[in-house]
């Protein structure tokens, strides 16, 4: 089931980012697969990148398949420039 509206607008506040990933991690506990929709994401911070990497690592350990869809080009460029390969592998 796709997770919608978790990542909206400018993800710059660490609290907001923590809260979003906390929700995501909770969902990962009882799922085999998570589909994250970045359609409404406008801006990401360094902290966001680190949390996303960390989440992917945790999901991997839990054998939860993560997929990321609808990454806006400006955010995809951030992933590319940051060379965050573990994130890039999951984008489609």
């Amino acid at each position: 089931m796709p997770i919608k509206n978790l990542f909206n607008g400018e993800m710059t506040s660490n609290e907001v980012i923590d809260s979003a990933f906390s929700l995501l991690e909770n969902q990962a506990l009882d799922r085999n697969e998570i589909l994250i929709n970045f359609q409404n994401l406008v801006f990401v911070s360094v902290y966001f990148l680190e949390k996303l990497e960390s989440f992917i690592e945790k999901a991997k350990k839990l054998n939860v398949k993560v997929q990321i869809k609808n990454v806006p080009p400006s955010i995809y460029k951030v992933f590319r420039v940051a060379r965050v390969n573990e994130i890039l592998k999951l984008c489609f």
Partner: peptide, 12 residues
Amino acid sequence: LKARKASAVFTQ
């Protein structure tokens, strides 16, 4: 690695 991410985020 931190600088790398900073440079990426800076593109926005």
